[in-house]
Write a protein that binds this DNA or RNA. Structure first.
Lengths: 150, 150
DNA sequence: CTTGAAAAAAAGTGCCC
DNA sequence: GGGCACTTTTTTTCAAG
């Protein structure tokens, strides 16, 4: 993992649709060496996957919400069970167990408020282990990247 | 935006490195029609970009933290200024202004605790408009996807 | 063992129907 | 939307450093 690998990863994190020849030129390598490096990074698992990122508004999911959850019983198995339940919801894009006052944090991508209503009903009505939950809405997105700084 | 478009988007959100011929076969289209659709979705901006997703641990960024920030003055221009400041930090991967008790929420990808210390120093020491901030750590990741449900 | 050049294979592109 | 010729890109091979 040298300077060129990091440079390649940075470029691919910004735009993975660029051609190998193009990338090779930018990092100053021959196309074959460049491809070898990328394949190595992929099979080593440094590059986990290549995905298409959609425009949330144009995909009809403009509402972003964050739910912090406090459980009744905080034991690891309870937290795990709640996370599994939350992860099963398509609208939940991130589900974490966290330190501090609350036990879990969910990041949601919603179509509208009705969908939020339906989701909270499903997640919290039958889930007797949830003590409290707080819903927050994203007003403005200042930054949203999938790129990990190297 | 019909059923086939949605199917294509779902597939591309999971894995954008698949070949056009492969995708065409899966959605039951000829490669040329399939490519036309994908290009249309791209130029329409539904597909915003195609990126490589790294394994955080293997990229040396295993610590995830969330900081919620309460500002002294809550006006729109102050929130915007803070978000810009936060967005400039490479370790900040998501920066939102939010509703409720706090004004902003930051999602961080960190190498270690020292990096967090340095970042909070930069963001909060000279920023006289920050009233309070709370740092939370991600203990377990139950789900983490870039895919928007369709 | 790694690099680069060139051939071979595969994919993407554009125009026709 | 599908079929086909054309172009570009990826991938393999192979010789040289």
């Amino acid at each position: 993992m040298d300077r060129i690998d990091r440079k390649l990863l940075n470029l691919l994190q910004q735009d993975a649709s660029r051609t190998n020849a193009d990338l090779a030129a930018e990092v100053g390598l021959s196309p074959s060496s460049c491809l070898r490096r990328i394949r190595r990074l992929r099979s080593a698992g440094v590059i986990d996957r290549v995905v298409a990122i959609l425009n949330p508004a144009k995909a009809g999911r403009s509402v972003k919400a964050i739910i912090t959850v406090e459980l009744e019983r905080h034991g690891e198995q309870y937290v795990r069970r709640f996370l599994d339940l939350a992860a099963a919801e398509p609208a939940v894009v991130q589900a974490y167990s966290v330190s501090g006052e609350t036990d879990a944090l969910l990041m949601l991508r919603l179509k509208d408020m009705e969908e939020l209503d339906a989701l909270t009903e499903r997640l919290f009505r039958d889930e007797s282990n949830v003590a409290r939950y707080y819903t927050t809405f994203v007003i403005r997105t200042g930054k949203e990247t999938t790129a990990i700084p190297l």
